[in-house]
Design a protein around this nucleic acid. Structure first.
Lengths: 137, 137
DNA sequence: TATTGTTATACTCTATAACTATA
DNA sequence: TATAGTTATAGAGTATAACAATA
Protein backbone atom coordinates (compact mmCIF):
# COMPACT_ATOMS: atom_id res chain seq x y z
CA UNK A 1 0.00 0.00 0.00
CA UNK A 2 2.96 2.26 0.56
CA UNK A 3 4.13 1.96 -3.03
CA UNK A 4 0.69 2.95 -4.22
CA UNK A 5 0.93 6.60 -3.27
CA UNK A 6 2.64 9.58 -4.88
CA UNK A 7 6.11 10.54 -3.68
CA UNK A 8 6.19 12.62 -0.53
CA UNK A 9 7.84 15.47 -2.42
CA UNK A 10 5.12 15.54 -5.05
CA UNK A 11 2.36 15.66 -2.45
CA UNK A 12 4.08 18.30 -0.36
CA UNK A 13 4.70 20.52 -3.37
CA UNK A 14 1.11 20.12 -4.47
CA UNK A 15 -0.17 21.12 -1.06
CA UNK A 16 2.28 24.00 -1.03
CA UNK A 17 0.90 25.34 -4.29
CA UNK A 18 -2.60 24.99 -2.93
CA UNK A 19 -1.72 26.92 0.22
CA UNK A 20 -0.02 29.67 -1.76
CA UNK A 21 -3.04 29.99 -4.04
CA UNK A 22 -5.17 30.24 -0.91
CA UNK A 23 -3.01 32.93 0.67
CA UNK A 24 -2.46 35.07 -2.40
CA UNK A 25 -5.81 36.89 -2.40
CA UNK A 26 -5.47 37.59 1.32
CA UNK A 27 -2.01 39.04 0.89
CA UNK A 28 -3.03 41.05 -2.12
CA UNK A 29 -5.94 42.54 -0.24
CA UNK A 30 -3.45 43.73 2.36
CA UNK A 31 -1.03 44.96 -0.27
CA UNK A 32 1.94 42.85 0.76
CA UNK A 33 3.90 40.24 -1.15
CA UNK A 34 4.51 36.74 0.12
CA UNK A 35 8.07 37.56 1.12
CA UNK A 36 7.01 40.78 2.81
CA UNK A 37 4.58 38.79 4.93
CA UNK A 38 7.28 36.25 5.74
CA UNK A 39 9.50 39.13 6.89
CA UNK A 40 6.76 40.68 9.03
CA UNK A 41 6.07 37.31 10.62
CA UNK A 42 9.75 36.60 11.27
CA UNK A 43 10.12 39.98 12.97
CA UNK A 44 6.96 39.48 15.00
CA UNK A 45 8.35 36.23 16.33
CA UNK A 46 11.60 37.47 17.78
CA UNK A 47 11.54 39.02 21.19
CA UNK A 48 13.42 42.29 21.32
CA UNK A 49 14.01 44.41 18.24
CA UNK A 50 17.50 43.12 17.67
CA UNK A 51 18.42 41.51 14.41
CA UNK A 52 20.68 41.87 11.44
CA UNK A 53 19.49 41.65 7.86
CA UNK A 54 21.78 38.77 7.02
CA UNK A 55 20.50 36.75 9.98
CA UNK A 56 16.91 37.51 9.02
CA UNK A 57 17.57 36.45 5.44
CA UNK A 58 19.01 33.15 6.54
CA UNK A 59 16.24 32.46 9.02
CA UNK A 60 13.60 32.71 6.32
CA UNK A 61 15.63 30.89 3.70
CA UNK A 62 16.19 33.85 1.41
CA UNK A 63 19.21 35.60 -0.01
CA UNK A 64 20.26 38.81 1.74
CA UNK A 65 20.16 40.75 -1.52
CA UNK A 66 16.56 39.69 -2.11
CA UNK A 67 15.62 41.23 1.20
CA UNK A 68 16.68 44.77 0.39
CA UNK A 69 13.84 45.97 -1.88
CA UNK A 70 11.35 44.26 0.45
CA UNK A 71 12.73 46.04 3.50
CA UNK A 72 12.87 49.32 1.56
CA UNK A 73 9.18 49.02 0.79
CA UNK A 74 8.12 47.96 4.28
CA UNK A 75 10.09 50.83 5.76
CA UNK A 76 8.69 53.36 3.32
CA UNK A 77 5.20 52.25 4.28
CA UNK A 78 5.90 52.59 7.97
CA UNK A 79 5.56 48.90 8.79
CA UNK A 80 9.11 48.40 10.02
CA UNK A 81 11.88 50.47 11.53
CA UNK A 82 15.42 50.06 10.28
CA UNK A 83 18.18 51.98 11.98
CA UNK A 84 21.92 51.53 12.33
CA UNK A 85 22.97 49.65 15.44
CA UNK A 86 24.74 52.21 17.68
CA UNK A 87 27.07 49.47 18.86
CA UNK A 88 28.07 48.48 15.34
CA UNK A 89 26.96 50.96 12.76
CA UNK A 90 27.44 48.51 9.91
CA UNK A 91 24.44 46.53 11.10
CA UNK A 92 20.79 47.58 10.95
CA UNK A 93 18.39 46.95 13.80
CA UNK A 94 15.05 45.79 12.49
CA UNK A 95 11.74 46.03 14.31
CA UNK A 96 8.06 46.13 13.53
CA UNK A 97 6.20 49.37 14.12
CA UNK A 98 2.84 49.24 15.88
CA UNK A 99 1.22 49.43 12.49
CA UNK A 100 3.42 46.61 11.28
CA UNK A 101 2.45 44.43 14.20
CA UNK A 102 -1.20 45.08 13.56
CA UNK A 103 -0.88 44.32 9.88
CA UNK A 104 0.93 41.07 10.58
CA UNK A 105 -1.70 40.00 13.10
CA UNK A 106 -4.55 40.89 10.77
CA UNK A 107 -3.08 38.93 7.87
CA UNK A 108 -2.16 35.95 9.99
CA UNK A 109 -5.63 35.79 11.44
CA UNK A 110 -7.16 35.54 8.00
CA UNK A 111 -4.63 32.97 6.90
CA UNK A 112 -5.30 30.83 9.96
CA UNK A 113 -9.00 30.92 9.24
CA UNK A 114 -8.39 29.78 5.68
CA UNK A 115 -6.02 27.07 6.90
CA UNK A 116 -8.63 25.77 9.31
CA UNK A 117 -11.17 25.62 6.52
CA UNK A 118 -8.74 23.58 4.49
CA UNK A 119 -8.01 21.20 7.35
CA UNK A 120 -11.60 21.04 8.55
CA UNK A 121 -12.67 17.90 6.75
CA UNK A 122 -9.68 15.81 7.79
CA UNK A 123 -10.00 13.59 10.83
CA UNK A 124 -6.25 13.39 11.40
CA UNK A 125 -5.53 17.08 11.08
CA UNK A 126 -4.08 17.41 14.58
CA UNK A 127 -1.63 14.57 14.04
CA UNK A 128 -0.84 16.03 10.64
CA UNK A 129 0.03 19.43 12.03
CA UNK A 130 2.10 17.94 14.84
CA UNK A 131 4.06 15.74 12.46
CA UNK A 132 4.48 18.55 9.95
CA UNK A 133 5.82 20.80 12.64
CA UNK A 134 8.34 18.17 13.62
CA UNK A 135 9.37 17.27 10.07
CA UNK A 136 9.77 20.86 8.91
CA UNK A 137 12.23 21.71 11.65
CA UNK B 1 -1.57 26.46 21.36
CA UNK B 2 -2.72 26.70 17.81
CA UNK B 3 -1.53 30.28 17.46
CA UNK B 4 1.89 29.29 18.72
CA UNK B 5 2.98 27.48 15.60
CA UNK B 6 4.27 28.68 12.24
CA UNK B 7 1.80 29.09 9.42
CA UNK B 8 0.94 25.92 7.55
CA UNK B 9 2.34 27.36 4.35
CA UNK B 10 5.67 28.17 5.96
CA UNK B 11 6.03 24.66 7.37
CA UNK B 12 4.99 22.98 4.14
CA UNK B 13 7.40 25.04 2.06
CA UNK B 14 10.20 24.32 4.50
CA UNK B 15 9.55 20.60 4.31
CA UNK B 16 9.33 20.87 0.54
CA UNK B 17 12.76 22.44 0.37
CA UNK B 18 14.10 19.75 2.63
CA UNK B 19 12.66 17.00 0.44
CA UNK B 20 14.02 18.59 -2.72
CA UNK B 21 17.46 18.86 -1.16
CA UNK B 22 17.17 15.20 -0.26
CA UNK B 23 16.15 14.13 -3.74
CA UNK B 24 18.60 16.24 -5.68
CA UNK B 25 21.69 14.04 -5.24
CA UNK B 26 19.66 10.95 -6.13
CA UNK B 27 18.35 12.53 -9.31
CA UNK B 28 21.73 13.86 -10.26
CA UNK B 29 23.27 10.43 -9.84
CA UNK B 30 20.71 9.15 -12.33
CA UNK B 31 21.27 12.09 -14.65
CA UNK B 32 17.70 13.37 -14.68
CA UNK B 33 16.26 16.68 -13.63
CA UNK B 34 13.41 17.04 -11.17
CA UNK B 35 10.90 17.70 -13.93
CA UNK B 36 12.19 14.80 -16.00
CA UNK B 37 11.58 12.51 -13.05
CA UNK B 38 8.11 13.96 -12.57
CA UNK B 39 7.40 13.21 -16.23
CA UNK B 40 8.70 9.65 -15.98
CA UNK B 41 6.58 9.09 -12.88
CA UNK B 42 3.46 10.56 -14.46
CA UNK B 43 3.89 8.31 -17.49
CA UNK B 44 4.52 5.27 -15.32
CA UNK B 45 1.27 5.89 -13.53
CA UNK B 46 -1.08 5.93 -16.46
CA UNK B 47 -2.29 2.59 -17.81
CA UNK B 48 -2.01 2.40 -21.56
CA UNK B 49 0.44 4.51 -23.55
CA UNK B 50 -2.13 7.11 -24.50
CA UNK B 51 -1.64 10.71 -23.62
CA UNK B 52 -1.18 14.12 -25.11
CA UNK B 53 1.55 16.51 -24.10
CA UNK B 54 -0.85 19.23 -23.06
CA UNK B 55 -2.73 16.83 -20.79
CA UNK B 56 0.53 15.62 -19.29
CA UNK B 57 1.67 19.18 -18.68
CA UNK B 58 -1.53 20.04 -16.89
CA UNK B 59 -1.50 16.88 -14.80
CA UNK B 60 1.92 17.70 -13.37
CA UNK B 61 1.21 21.40 -12.99
CA UNK B 62 3.65 22.60 -15.64
CA UNK B 63 3.36 24.68 -18.77
CA UNK B 64 3.25 22.77 -22.05
CA UNK B 65 6.17 24.76 -23.42
CA UNK B 66 8.30 23.80 -20.46
CA UNK B 67 7.75 20.16 -21.27
CA UNK B 68 9.26 20.24 -24.75
CA UNK B 69 13.00 20.30 -23.99
CA UNK B 70 12.44 17.74 -21.24
CA UNK B 71 10.64 15.38 -23.61
CA UNK B 72 13.27 15.99 -26.29
CA UNK B 73 15.97 14.91 -23.90
CA UNK B 74 14.12 11.88 -22.54
CA UNK B 75 13.37 10.73 -26.06
CA UNK B 76 16.93 11.22 -27.24
CA UNK B 77 18.11 9.10 -24.34
CA UNK B 78 15.66 6.34 -25.15
CA UNK B 79 13.63 6.66 -21.98
CA UNK B 80 10.35 7.56 -23.67
CA UNK B 81 8.68 7.03 -27.00
CA UNK B 82 6.90 9.92 -28.68
CA UNK B 83 5.03 9.24 -31.89
CA UNK B 84 2.18 10.93 -33.71
CA UNK B 85 -1.23 9.51 -32.92
CA UNK B 86 -2.43 7.75 -36.09
CA UNK B 87 -5.98 8.81 -35.28
CA UNK B 88 -5.03 12.49 -34.98
CA UNK B 89 -1.58 13.21 -36.23
CA UNK B 90 -1.41 16.56 -34.43
CA UNK B 91 -1.17 14.76 -31.09
CA UNK B 92 1.79 12.77 -29.77
CA UNK B 93 1.39 9.46 -27.98
CA UNK B 94 3.78 9.27 -25.06
CA UNK B 95 4.99 6.11 -23.41
CA UNK B 96 7.90 4.92 -21.33
CA UNK B 97 10.34 2.50 -22.92
CA UNK B 98 11.44 -0.54 -20.91
CA UNK B 99 14.56 1.38 -20.02
CA UNK B 100 12.46 4.34 -18.97
CA UNK B 101 10.34 2.16 -16.72
CA UNK B 102 13.41 0.69 -15.10
CA UNK B 103 14.96 4.08 -14.55
CA UNK B 104 11.79 5.43 -12.98
CA UNK B 105 11.53 2.43 -10.68
CA UNK B 106 15.17 2.66 -9.68
CA UNK B 107 14.95 6.34 -8.83
CA UNK B 108 11.67 6.01 -7.00
CA UNK B 109 13.02 3.17 -4.92
CA UNK B 110 15.90 5.32 -3.72
CA UNK B 111 13.62 8.25 -3.04
CA UNK B 112 11.24 6.10 -1.02
CA UNK B 113 14.13 4.84 1.07
CA UNK B 114 15.24 8.39 1.78
CA UNK B 115 11.68 9.41 2.57
CA UNK B 116 11.34 6.58 5.04
CA UNK B 117 14.55 7.65 6.74
CA UNK B 118 13.13 11.13 7.07
CA UNK B 119 9.85 9.89 8.50
CA UNK B 120 11.44 7.21 10.64
CA UNK B 121 11.64 9.14 13.89
CA UNK B 122 8.07 10.37 13.84
CA UNK B 123 5.42 8.42 15.71
CA UNK B 124 2.53 9.86 13.69
CA UNK B 125 4.05 9.33 10.28
CA UNK B 126 1.25 7.09 9.05
CA UNK B 127 -1.43 9.60 9.97
CA UNK B 128 0.74 12.32 8.45
CA UNK B 129 1.03 10.56 5.11
CA UNK B 130 -2.69 9.73 5.04
CA UNK B 131 -3.66 13.32 5.79
CA UNK B 132 -1.11 14.69 3.35
CA UNK B 133 -2.44 12.44 0.65
CA UNK B 134 -5.94 13.71 1.30
CA UNK B 135 -5.01 17.38 1.57
CA UNK B 136 -2.83 17.41 -1.54
CA UNK B 137 -5.61 16.13 -3.75
C1' DT C 1 41.73 42.75 6.53
C1' DA C 2 36.95 41.32 7.56
C1' DT C 3 32.03 42.23 7.76
C1' DT C 4 27.32 44.59 6.85
C1' DG C 5 24.63 46.30 3.75
C1' DT C 6 23.97 47.79 -0.98
C1' DT C 7 24.09 47.97 -6.07
C1' DA C 8 24.82 46.04 -10.61
C1' DT C 9 24.82 42.15 -13.30
C1' DA C 10 23.95 37.61 -14.97
C1' DC C 11 21.52 33.50 -14.86
C1' DT C 12 17.56 30.38 -14.34
C1' DC C 13 12.93 29.49 -14.47
C1' DT C 14 8.51 30.30 -16.22
C1' DA C 15 4.96 32.33 -19.04
C1' DT C 16 3.28 34.80 -23.40
C1' DA C 17 2.95 35.25 -28.13
C1' DA C 18 3.79 33.90 -32.69
C1' DC C 19 4.37 30.04 -35.98
C1' DT C 20 3.60 25.02 -38.23
C1' DA C 21 1.06 21.23 -39.14
C1' DT C 22 -2.78 18.96 -39.00
C1' DA C 23 -7.90 18.77 -38.53
C1' DT D 1 -11.50 28.04 -37.82
C1' DA D 2 -9.66 25.53 -34.27
C1' DT D 3 -6.21 22.57 -31.85
C1' DA D 4 -1.44 20.08 -30.72
C1' DG D 5 2.92 20.95 -30.71
C1' DT D 6 6.90 23.90 -31.35
C1' DT D 7 9.88 28.02 -31.36
C1' DA D 8 11.18 32.68 -30.03
C1' DT D 9 10.83 36.12 -26.84
C1' DA D 10 10.08 38.53 -22.69
C1' DG D 11 9.38 38.69 -17.80
C1' DA D 12 9.93 37.39 -12.93
C1' DG D 13 12.66 35.54 -9.54
C1' DT D 14 17.02 34.42 -7.81
C1' DA D 15 21.96 34.25 -7.20
C1' DT D 16 26.83 36.07 -8.02
C1' DA D 17 30.11 39.56 -8.03
C1' DA D 18 31.67 44.09 -7.23
C1' DC D 19 31.35 48.21 -4.21
C1' DA D 20 30.92 51.50 -0.04
C1' DA D 21 30.93 52.10 4.80
C1' DT D 22 32.37 50.64 9.14
C1' DA D 23 34.99 47.80 12.19
Amino acid sequence: MDSERPDLGAMVMRLGRRLIAMEEPILERHGVSMWAYVVLTALSGSEGPTRTQAALAQSIGADKTRLIPILDDLQKRGLIEREPDPADRRARLLALTEEGKEKQRAIQKEIRTAENDLLAGNKEKDAFVRALRDLSR
